[in-house]
């Protein structure tokens, strides 16, 4: 955890942007997109004002868990190149401030979501914050190389919360949207880990590529992709799916599966020789993969409004 004695002293007064950076805006944008899709594909219409406010509070809750993560991980963030510029390790914001902002915004987001939506959505948001800040960041991140699998669950909750805002409950559709992001995270992240020279090992964070080797990482990418494919196609058979989603999902899953097989079959020497071309291609594809699946679900919901496109 954070040992304030090893952090640089605070360099002057922090600006608003420094506090905003604590909320991990890039992660928040993905949360907004997936939560909005979860909310809009639900069969119950939501008033635009309630939808806007609810998605905003979900994003603030996600941001708050990011601030708590930065507070706890300030010591290892300072070691890694990718994270040493963050507000706490760079000294622009004190760890105490990050903790305060994280805690207060968490409470604020959960209470406001309870008032704007319903107890189920608020409860799911509270659990997501707890899961990311405590289960992932404090317990598992530095303990097991499966950390990315478990951490992926926190990123998978937003569409489920969006669905709960509209329906007030949990159903097979929302569980499948959760499963889609949950199963997508490991191959997405490990494809990146194969070609990025990371300094996780220096920071004492166990990564699969280091603890079990690159051969095993390639095998795990294929295993998780094999589980991901039926989840993605199965989503298309539920009430939120339809021919358009199914067509998009078929093309994307065939391409992603081929990519995962290619990664699995490659030897490390071949990858090094061509500068990890296949791994980079699969990583790029994984970004489109998630965006287009959720985009197709949204398009399917729009078509349904006009009475076309559903099963």
């Amino acid at each position: 955890m954070t040992d304030t004695s090893i952090l640089p002293p605070q360099s002057g007064e922090a600006g608003f942007g420094d506090y905003f950076a604590l909320l991990k805006p890039r992660v928040m944008s993905l949360v907004v997109f997936t939560a909005l899709v979860g909310l809009l594909v639900a069969p119950v219409p939501v008033h635009p004002m309630v939808a806007f406010a609810s998605v905003l509070f979900i994003a603030i809750g996600a941001g708050a868990s990011g601030a708590l993560n930065m507070w706890w991980d300030a010591d290892i963030d300072q070691i890694m190149k990718r994270t040493k510029g963050r507000p706490v390790p760079s000294g622009r914001v004190t760890p105490g401030e990050a903790l305060q902002i994280g805690m207060w915004l968490s409470c604020f987001a959960v209470v406001m979501l309870l008032l704007s939506a319903n107890p189920v959505a608020a409860g799911l948001l509270a659990f997501t914050i707890f899961f990311y800040a405590v289960v992932y960041t404090m317990w598992l991140k530095r303990w097991t190389p499966q950390n990315i699998v478990i951490g992926g669950a926190a990123g998978a909750f937003p569409p489920m919360i969006g669905w709960a805002v509209a329906t007030g409950g949990v159903s097979v559709e929302s569980v499948l949207m959760f499963a889609l992001i949950f199963m997508w995270t490991p191959p997405h992240f490990w494809a990146l880990a194969l070609f990025m020279k990371s300094d996780y090992a220096d920071a004492g964070v166990p990564m699969l590529t280091v603890t079990h080797g690159r051969r095993e990482t390639r095998r795990q990418i294929l295993i998780y992709t094999l589980i991901l494919v039926p989840v993605a196609l199965g989503t298309g058979l539920t009430s939120i799916g339809g021919p358009l989603y199914m067509a998009v999902a078929l093309v994307l899953n065939l391409a992603f599966l081929k990519g995962a097989v290619d990664i699995w079959r490659r030897k490390e020497e071949e990858a090094e020789a061509d500068g990890y071309a296949v791994e980079k291609k699969v990583f790029r594809l994984s970004l489109y993969y998630l965006f287009l699946h959720f985009g197709a679900l949204l398009a399917q919901a729009v078509l349904r409004v006009y009475g076309i496109g559903g099963w």
């Binding site: 004002m49 806007f52 406010a53 008032l115 704007s116």
Partner: peptide
């Protein structure tokens, strides 16, 4: 600048609560 942003956030919050 920071105070301006905090003020804007508070105004936004009031508008959201009013709208809700």
């Amino acid at each position: 600048g920071r105070n301006l942003w905090v003020g804007a956030c508070l105004l936004g919050f009031v508008a959201i609560v009013f709208g809700l």
